[in-house]
Amino acid sequence: MTTTAPEAKDAVREDATGSVLEVAGLDVHYGRGRKRRRALHGVTLDIAPGEAVGVIGETGSGKSTLARTVLGLVPASAGSIRIAGEDVSGYGPRQWRDLRRRGVIQYVFQDPLRSLDPDLTIEESLTEPLLIQGVRRQEAALRARSFLDRVHLTTDLLDRLPGELSGGQRQRVSVARALVTEPRLVILDEPVSALDSANRVQVLEILKELRTSGVALVFISHDLGSVAGTADRITVLYQGELVETGTARAVVNQPQHPYTRLLLGSAPTLRGKPADRAEREALRALLSA
């Protein structure tokens, strides 16, 4: 795969049975001095190869901070992070860049409108991670084409600009872009929340298909419904802490924490009786106490 770092690739293969991502006791703080705020506290997460894990959380729960910390964009104040067996806790900018260049871990952003450079063609965006790795242009273009097919897009989009694509198409391009380096872990931050329902279904289908390809997915979302069908495991993040973890079915059907219960009671459903307003009130009161 990567011609630039063969020894690193071997190291990864040795570890193929271990976790792709191991987060233990992670604390993250923002700001300094009196303005210092805790964003994450004691987060522990373990993701096996090929596993799909949903992280549920609402605004301010710290879910994006979690993703950004794992990707090295935000420094952790305590705890450890291991990516494919490699302890990255004390990494400096240079080590991070080397790690990222190997393409082991990739990221899909929430906003498909802004996650592709509006001045670059789809082909240029798709090949970028490969070109950064030092893959030759023609070789990169060839590989980009094959990944376009994986997200059900046709190659005639390659020389278009993002502005000419629909939101769903753009998000699928973003997914393809994250896959071109054949990563072992892709973190998706709200991949479908900016899409309308038709596009949402399409992107979710693609993500489901991906699960058979052996890449591990971390699926961050505020929407239990879209995660429940795609993830094996679900973990619920509330005010910077993981309050509940379990299989998707268990979390949805036997929620333990009041917040999870409120989440479930709040999701609008089609045929269910308009869920009990009083029950939600009670849960809100319980949580704010």
Binding site: S197, A198, R200, V201, L204, L224, G225, S226, A228, G229, A248, R249, V252, N253, L264, A267, T269, L270, R271, G272
Partner: peptide
């Protein structure tokens, strides 16, 4: 029908056990 089907496949309704 499509809207309803989409909601059925990815809404929460599908995953909730019938006991609700």
């Amino acid at each position: 029908r499509l809207l309803i089907a989409e909601h059925d496949s990815y809404g929460l309704d599908t995953f909730l056990a019938p006991k609700e």
